[in-house]
Design a protein around this nucleic acid. Structure first.
Length: 498
RNA sequence: GGGUCGUUAGCUCAGUCGGUAGAGCAGUAGCCUUUUAAGCUAUUGGCCGCAGGUUCGAUUCCUGCACGACCCA
């Protein structure tokens, strides 16, 4: 401990200041200062007033926040104080403060959290400023903040110590506020359409509802292994069986997979189910939902700048058949279904395919490599094969494909939905097929869920369901190409750190 | 999992064709009552990511490891 203090003189200096305050009888870490105003509210209320009118008002206000800038010259000086709404300037001069308060002011550091009471005025340059009559130290910050101009650049530190990132990089807070607004808009839209928000288990006894490897945990009292859910799908559809004919859930899913720009092991999904509708309804409904989000964010253009692309969300969005896409965009020949040919091409593209894989799964790999990156403007891909859609209803005209779609924007899968498979006999067969694939070594195949089959046997009404990746949605609306920039605390490996 | 690059002061970054390091900001001391990255003067601060190897000598070259960024699977 002492060694560490020796090592960092800056922290040591600040601790000494704190000790000094304490020995002078000053209250430390006090919580009895109650501000009556917020920084940005003062700006919106008084920025428009002339200096003279401000002085006539003689308005006394109190604010609290963190010292973000400190400019002192002898017997006076300025500080920028930041609260959750924004910043406001404070002017401190010797003649307007008590001896003790001025002494305190001279000892303040950038990063300290203070309370200020004073009157409003404007400086020479017209900036609204509080002339301090009283300054109170609320919390002493003993660690120095990053540099005022460049802020915190190191991405690793920004993710690991998000609290520091938030203090110095305003953009982070803006992104997270926008994230909150987007989620609120989505929730609003669902509730307005008479959906009920529910919460289903995060800990599952069986893996299902998606194609992914799960995290495993253990319940001690029951002595059973449990899986963190990879999707809520099978529970939500049980609810539709039970008569909750419009349900949705906004919550975390967990997938035990690699991490990259677009994947974090825990991520947020909005999943919803609506009875007596089919996938065609979902296409329109999704477009409407985006409209609603744009509306809530005050975006009238229905366009987003994302990296180098300007994405146009004008309706209707493009519909693209899976097999057509492979041919027209992926450049494959008409005999695309030729298994050996597809397999070799996938190998050439460096995809990790193996001989046990179904042709459909290989085609999905090819689609992923050749088509998806080219889908910039919102595109619904429809007509996915049955073999890679174990929970989707078959198409009436062509039983090899499903009434399923995925939504791609800027090459990212943003949503996945379909008419739900409600035939318990077909579902049973598909589960068995998944079991086979699992036995062949596919760790992503789902498990046989007998209770879900039982639920279907009671009768699931014709239903449409969809999942929307919230993190990716936020990425689009905030122009971030890394999922880590829209998640407050992305998963990071441990690092030796005293 | 593979490849490329990175890791130097609290922060942002230089640098050393191998001889144990430098700037700006922050800090400290001083001057300064309207500043806006305030200014001026002086000044403190470093296991140069970790572990090996080569060498008289490594922060620098080599190998391995850790963590991260980006690209690919």
């Amino acid at each position: 401990m002492i060694e560490m203090e020796d090592r960092n003189k800056l922290i040591q200096r600040r601790i000494e200041k704190l000790e000094q305050f304490k020995s002078q009888g000053m209250k430390i870490f006090r919580n009895d200062f109650l501000p009556d105003s917020f920084a940005n509210d003062l700006h919106s209320e008084y920025d428009g007033l002339e200096l003279e009118k401000l002085l006539d008002l003689d308005k006394t206000v109190s604010i609290a926040g963190r010292v973000m800038a400190y400019r002192s010259f002898g017997k006076a000086g300025f500080m920028k104080v930041k609260d959750f709404t924004g910043q406001i300037q404070v002017y401190a001069e010797k003649n307007s403060l008590s001896y003790e308060d001025f002494k305190l002011y001279k000892k303040l550091d950038v990063g300290d959290i203070i309370g200020v009471e004073g009157s409003l005025f404007k400086t020479k340059t017209g900036e609204l400023t509080i002339k301090a009559k009283k300054i109170v130290l609320l919390t002493k910050s003993i660690r120095p903040l990053p540099e005022k101009w460049h802020g915190l650049q190191d991405k690793e530190l920004r993710y690991r110590q998000r609290y520091v990132d938030l203090i110095v990089n305003d953009e982070v807070k803006e992104t997270m506020v926008k994230r909150s607004k987007i989620i609120n808009a989505v929730r609003d839209f669902m509730v307005n359409n008479r959906f009920v928000e529910v919460e289903t288990p995060m800990m599952h006894k069986l893996v299902g509802g998606a194609t992914a490897k799960p995290f495993v945990t253990h319940h001690n009292a029951l002595d059973i292994d449990l899986y963190l859910r990879i999707a809520p799908e099978l529970y939500l559809k049980r609810l539709v069986v039970g008569g909750l004919e419009r349900v949705f859930e906004i919550n975390r899913n967990f997938r035990n997979e690699g991490m990259d720009l677009k994947h974090n092991p825990e991520f947020t999904m909005m999943e919803f189910y609506v009875a007596y509708k089919n996938y065609r309804f979902l296409l329109d409904y999704t477009e409407e939902m985006f409209d609603y989000i744009f509306e809530s964010l005050g975006n009238k253009e229905r366009k987003l700048q994302f990296g180098e692309n300007e994405i146009d969300f004008s309706r209707p969005w493009k519909r693209l058949d899976f097999f057509e896409g492979l041919k027209t965009i992926g450049g494959l020949d008409d005999d695309v279904i030729n298994r050996d040919k597809a397999f070799n091409l996938a190998l050439e593209l460096g995809k990790s395919v193996n001989k046990n894989m179904s042709i459909e799964k290989i085609l999905a790999e090819l689609f992923d490599a050749l088509v998806e990156p080219k889908l910039i403007n919102p595109t619904f891909v429809i007509g996915y094969p049955v073999a890679i859609s174990p929970l989707a209803r078959r198409n009436d005209e062509n039983p090899d494909i499903t009434e399923r779609f995925e939504l791609f924007i800027s090459g990212m899968e943003v949503a996945n939905g379909f008419s739900e498979l409600n035939d318990p006999f077909d579902q049973k067969e598909r589960f068995l097929k998944q079991l086979e694939e699992r036995k062949m070594g596919d760790e992503e195949a789902s498990m046989y869920d007998a209770d879900y089959i039982r639920a279907l046997e009671y009768g699931l009404p014709p239903t449409a369901g969809e999942g929307i990746g919230i993190d990716r949605l936020v990425m689009l609306f905030t122009n971030h190409d890394s999922i880590r920039d829209v998640i407050l605390f992305p998963l990071m490996k441990d690092k030796d750190d005293e």
